[in-house]
Write a protein that binds this DNA or RNA. Structure first.
Length: 1200
RNA sequence: GGGCCUUUAGCUCAGCUGGUUAGAGCAUCCCUCUGAUAAGGGGAAGGUCUGUGGUUCAAGUCCACAAAGGCCCA
């Protein structure tokens, strides 16, 4: 027997129960066992950064991940189920620093690298635990670590990383220090999620880098890049674009560069970064620009013609010349007196100077005008000051013109030696003194604040400087072509993903893999201080073999700083001692290697071959083309020359409901836990599932509520309806005779087959929303048509074949739908499955997620059944429209509905005659005998058929058709199957199939048309029909009063009434019907007893006073067999009284609704009835029942 | 500056290879049904499909250009 179903479930509460059920039954592990050995479907999880709680934007992608894993598991595939955590890099460091209140790198070094790295690991373990719990809450089935174990390791690591522990893994006990065990998380011996800080992950990157080095791709390069002097690190272009430009007022300083060969003449140069003037080497002009020679006072100045307006005061233009003409002019620099500017090759920190040693000139000697296409006139003077040590583009010009490089700043933004009075000064504090110095030297021209967008550090908001640094790179030219070839072998969804990736690959520069920080991959590069040669080591074993010192310090530790730094090796070139470079790795190395490291590459070749490449990966598009997708592809290309994945699904960005990014400070952010608690995981998952991939998603509570109301609630209502009546009838699938299926049954089953085919095809094609759309359409058909049209079949007393068929059909639909929806909404489907299947078939699989995907059999879709129902529904819709237009309420029965339809469609409708009559509340269905009375025809060509046939002549054919006499044309087409038209004086013939005949209703409000159908209602209300209508009105009011007075569904009542004449007659004539519908055992005219619930009303020119009271209760509960006699739908059974629905008294909302109706009533029916007045009164006032808190002001039911 | 995506009703979005009168949900208004009930159903209103040009018998759909917004690169 099915368990009772609450009418108004809390989905979040239900989901927690299901989570407990899965845990208690070990449901996930059971699924793994069931599918072990099946064909493989390989999903590779893109690692989530374990640095903060996960957000609702993560839940989007994670829903896809879970959905496709569940779908494939149901289809019988064996899966790996491994989640991944991204663990290393600056993101984690930043948060640890924040926790500690650190400001700069010096704070970290003072604190100590070893404890700092421990804190980073602890943070990762902590948020891995948090994200694990959140993911479980979302319904993700993965091979999760126990969060408690992760927290235990976190705490043990903090106490003593060297303490020895034993954990139990899939292959038995694993013993080691805490640090060693943490380094083995996710590996086969410990299982669970992979962590990119694992030893295996790090050493596999070593192997990759060594492979690259063997190809000659690894090199040390020097560049000028954005730098935060507080953090002491370079900031990549990517980091800048995500967080950080601000509008900022900088000094706009204009200075003179006196020309050496033209006494009294100067270039005018403008800059917003005065500190870079100390390192000026050249001045750039645009070769295509026009420059002017200007006399102002005693001096002659040069600037571009387009920037003349920046001059103040009087001046005289002496002449014009092209930028080309200025090339090579030599000038005196602003700080030529500094030693740094007098050094051949330029000046920089000692370690970098050798790079420019081949350049013979000093900055002073090099000062000259160079040509540069990028010079513009939007700001400044059209003459750009070039300091190759202080700007990225300037540095490119150094390469182009072999200019010296003067790089003034150390990593903390302080002037290095060689800069005279500036040495030792922080860059942030020198502007005023530089300006003063230039004034003293006569170089100063003007200073005006200038507001512009300037990059800042995303972590500390310090304005960035540009600084010369050396970093390590992997040259990508050798991989560019192979990567593009492999990219084309991958299926990208949406398709434009491939173009994006190819575009990136065409444009990508060499991959900068180093970062001067502490927590991350220890780059396996050992550099010899003596000869500058470097080696890249490919494994821990190689390192041990080549170590000459420090191995004892490192042994037993994970390959992280600081311990790895202690190991020194023999230089393979000069035999000297090489040390590891101090840099850590780019975190995308960590994420890119996972299709090797997690698949036991090198350790278990068979396993790797079994699971590589991934069948499927999915991540949010923004960023991933040059991040994870890129690094994943690159690693696979370098190591195996294979694509790392067969299908890549990318999706857009999640925004708040207001269309803006979610921001805590804007108040539009929703945290995952909050969302899960408020709206539940299933609702969220369905929102994600319905979303198109390539459009940004607006996520918020309004959409969530709509999703709940549109999808989850109707699903629940159908289920609840089924269970309620199946319990009352004691129906179970085991006992079911097949019954005799009706047209309606066959229709919904045909729709179900259609749905299975659609959903299966869409998911096989990785198109989630194309699966979700037909599901919603089906649910609408099921809830608002099948169930609505079938209700009486479940209510009725007889347990006949028709009722059996109804139960069997609805049951089959519900169970199949449950399976189809299981990957989408795993919680509610599990609940449904437990009650619908397990409660009556204990031998069935324990979980819906252990079951098999419904078989696709598109052949079972019965097109005729579907078309019949379509026709019937069209007619019903039109009939409703006719009633609405004519203000003919459905409660008033009418004599007949008259339909105009093509003769061959008549059978479709007679098939569904009973349905149409009932739905429209009419007595007869007729087909128009003389259509011409009701309709005219509009003739339209079938464009697809006739367009190509007639080509340019087509418009004339169309016109001829429109001009033809419709009635005659239709007659001709119907009798002979063809029609002759005259076009351009020639006769052409069209066939019946080439012409679409659209009937058009003739004037008159009681007719509606759509497509091939026209529906008319006979609006004559005979006295008999009127009486029946009044009887229905009477019933309606009794039912209302029953609810208002708080009666149970099953209560028998005595009904007293006082009615005007017409109504009284109708009540008499339809007494039997009234008693049945209202469970009235005694229908008494006249006397209104005290103590009863009463109401009065006026309608249709009649008046009514009602009083009802409970009939004397029978001695005991009625036997089930007996309850059926009186009522069609209300059912007395002890169990029924415990249904929350039936227990509900006429509550506040009901009376509000009534108030709303009372208010509306006079408006709509003023012509027919007097203003309604009905006062629900509850005499015995059972419970808080009919406390008529009816607020007259209530405007509509929606106001609640 | 280059590449890609988006632009359809007040809002959020569907519209397959060009083809009949461009659809849905929400919101609004009107009506209705009622023991799925803090639900349900029907109807109305709401569109120069961002603009301009082109191809075509036929363009929301294809092409070109432009505009706005977004993503990426430089």
């Amino acid at each position: 027997m099915f368990q009772p179903v609450p009418a108004n479930p809390s989905f979040p509460v239900l989901e927690r129960e299901i989570l407990a059920f899965w845990k208690d039954t070990d449901a996930f592990e059971t699924l793994r066992r069931l599918r072990a050995g099946g064909p493989t479907w390989s999903f590779m999880d893109g690692p989530i950064t374990a640095n903060n709680p996960m957000g609702v934007h993560h839940a989007w992608g994670r829903t896809y991940k879970d959905l496709f894993q569940r779908f494939h598991a149901m289809r019988g595939f064996d899966l790996r189920w491994q989640n991944g955590f991204d663990c290393q890099g600056l993101w984690v460091e930043v948060n640890v620093e924040k926790d500690l209140g650190f400001k700069t790198k010096k704070d970290i070094e003072a604190y100590g690298l070893a404890p700092f790295v421990v804190l980073c690991k602890q943070r990762v373990l902590n948020f891995a635990a948090v994200q694990t719990e959140q993911s479980i809450r979302l319904g993700m089935w993965m091979d999760w670590n126990d969060p408690a174990v992760l927290r235990y390791l976190r705490d043990q690591l903090g106490q003593d990383p060297g303490a020895t522990l034993t954990l139990h893994g899939p292959r038995g006990q694993v013993t080691g220090t805490v640090e060693q065990l943490v380094g083995q998380l996710g590996l086969p011996q410990l299982g669970g999620s992979y962590f990119t800080f694992s030893d295996k992950n790090n050493y596999d990157i070593w192997k990759f880098l060594k492979t690259c080095h063997e190809q000659g791709w690894v090199y040390k390069g020097t560049d000028v890049m954005p730098w935060c002097w507080r953090c002491g690190t370079g900031i990549s272009q990517h980091e800048i674009v995500t967080e950080g430009y601000i509008d900022r007022a900088d000094p706009g300083l204009t200075v003179r560069f006196p020309l050496l060969d033209r006494p009294g003449e100067s270039l005018l140069v403008w800059t917003t970064t005065p500190w870079t003037l100390t390192s000026n080497v050249a001045a750039a002009v645009g070769p295509e620009l026009t420059y002017v020679k200007v006399k102002q006072g005693d001096e002659v100045l040069y600037l571009s013609k387009g920037t003349l307006k920046m001059l103040r005061g009087q001046f005289e233009v002496l002449g014009e010349l092209s930028g080309q003409a200025l090339e090579g002019w030599r000038y005196a620099g602003p700080f030529d007196e500094l030693p740094a500017n007098q050094h051949a090759g330029g000046w920089s920190e000692p370690g970098l100077r050798r790079l420019f040693a081949r350049i013979p000139e000093s900055a002073v000697q090099a000062h000259r005008v160079v040509l540069w296409d990028a010079v513009g006139e939007a700001e400044g003077t059209g003459i750009v000051h070039i300091a190759p040590g202080c700007g990225a583009e300037d540095f490119q010009l150094h390469k182009q013109y072999d200019l010296p490089v003067v790089a003034p700043l150390d990593e903390n933004g302080v002037y290095i030696e060689g800069f005279g009075w500036l040495t030792g000064q922080p860059v942030s504090e020198v502007t005023d003194r530089i300006v003063a110095d230039l004034q003293a030297k006569g170089r100063f021209y003007r200073l005006e604040p200038y507001t512009h967008r300037y990059p800042q550090c995303w972590r500390c908001a310090t304005p960035l400087v540009f600084r010369l640094v050396d970093e390590w790179y992997v040259g990508m030219d050798g991989l560019r072509k192979p990567l593009m070839r492999l990219t084309e072998q991958i299926r990208w969804i949406p398709e434009f993903g491939q173009d994006r990736e190819l575009d990136w690959l065409r444009n990508m520069h060499d991959w900068m893999i180093s970062k001067k920080r502490y927590w991350g991959l220890a780059l396996p590069i050992w550099e010899c201080a003596q000869c500058g040669h470097f080696d890249v080591l490919g494994s821990r074993e190689e390192l041990q073999a080549r170590a000459v010192a420090g191995w004892d310090v490192f042994a037993g530790h994970t390959p992280h700083r600081p311990y790895i730094d202690a190991v020194k090796v023999r230089c393979s070139a000069c035999g000297g001692t090489a040390e590891r470079i101090k840099d850590v790795g780019n975190p995308w190395l960590d994420a890119g290697i996972v299709s090797f490291s997690t698949l036991r590459y090198g350790d278990e070749p068979d396993y790797w071959r079994k699971w590589f490449p991934a069948d499927f990966i999915t991540e949010s598009f923004p960023g991933q083309f040059r991040n994870w997708f890129y690094s994943l592809l690159t690693m696979a290309a370098a190591l195996e020359d294979q694509p790392a994945a067969r299908t890549v699904l990318g999706f857009a960005t999640l925004l708040a409901e207001d269309g803006r990014p979610m921001h805590k400070s804007w108040g539009n952010a929703i945290e995952f836990n909050e969302a899960a608690d408020n709206i539940g995981a299933d609702v969220m998952r369905w929102m994600y599932a319905s979303q198109k991939y390539d459009a940004d998603m607006l996520f918020g509570y309004h959409g969530a509520d709509e999703t709940r109301r549109r999808f989850l609630l109707p699903l629940w209502n159908v289920y609840s309806f089924f269970v309620t009546y199946a319990r009352l009838d004691g129906w179970t699938p085991a006992r079911s005779a097949a019954g005799r299926r009706t047209e309606l049954d066959r229709w919904i089953l045909a729709r179900l087959e259609q749905l299975i085919a659609q959903v299966t095809a869409a998911l096989n094609d990785y198109h989630v929303y194309k699966a979700a759309q037909p599901v919603e359409a089906f649910l609408d058909d099921l809830s608002n048509w099948y169930v609505r049209r079938s209700r009486r079949r479940f209510w009725k007393s007889e347990a006949d074949a028709d009722k059996q068929a109804a139960y069997a059909t609805l049951y089959e639909v519900l169970v199949t739908l449950t399976k189809l929806l299981a990957p989408f909404v795993p919680f509610i489907t599990e609940h449904l499955y437990q009650n619908l299947v397990r409660a009556v078939a204990p031998g069935a699989p324990v979980s819906v997620h252990h079951g098999e995907w419904p078989a696709v059999n598109a052949d079972l879709v019965d097109e005729a059944v579907l078309a019949d129902m379509d026709a019937a529904r069209t007619v019903v819709t039109l009939g409703h429209a006719v009633r609405a237009a004519g203000n003919l309420k459905v409660r008033q029965p009418l004599g007949r509905v008259v339909v105009v339809a093509p003769p061959e469609k008549h059978a479709r409708l007679t098939h569904h005659q009973a349905l149409i009559l009932d739905e429209l509340n009419v007595k007869a269905l007729e087909f128009a005998e003389n259509e011409a009375e009701l309709v005219t025809y509009k003739l339209m060509p079938d464009n697809r058929a006739l367009g190509p046939r007639f080509g340019a002549q087509f418009p004339k054919v169309r016109a001829a058709l429109a001009a033809a006499d419709p009635a005659a044309a239709v007659a001709a087409l119907r009798s002979s199957g063809k029609l002759a038209l005259t076009v351009d004086g020639q006769s052409v013939e069209v066939a019946a199939g080439d012409v679409l005949i659209t009937p058009q209703p003739k004037a008159g409000f009681a007719v509606r048309a759509e497509g091939e159908y026209v529906v008319a209602l006979d609006t004559a209300v005979t006295p008999e029909l009127r009486a029946e209508g009044l009887a229905r009105e009477f019933v309606r009011r009794v039912q209302d009063l029953r609810k208002t007075a708080g009666f149970e569904i099953s209560d028998r009542i005595v009904t007293h009434y006082v009615a005007s004449e017409g109504l009284a007659e109708a009540v008499g004539a339809f007494a039997g019907y009234i008693r049945d519908e209202t469970l009235t055992v005694d229908l008494r005219p006249g006397f209104l007893p005290a103590g009863a619930a009463t109401a009065e009303d006026a309608f249709d020119g009649e008046t009514l006073k009602l009083a009802i009271a409970r009939a004397e209760a029978p001695a005991g509960p009625e036997p089930a067999a007996k309850r059926r006699t009186p009522a069609k739908k209300a059912i007395a059974q002890p169990g029924a009284k415990r249904q929350p629905t039936s227990k509900k008294p006429a509550s506040k909302p009901a009376s509000k609704r009534k108030a709303a109706r009372q208010k509306a009533a006079p408006k709509k029916t003023a012509a027919q009835r007097q203003p309604a007045s009905k006062k629900p009164v509850s005499k015995p006032a059972p419970k808080k029942a009919a406390k008529p808190k009816a607020r007259p002001a209530a405007r509509s039911r929606k106001t609640r």
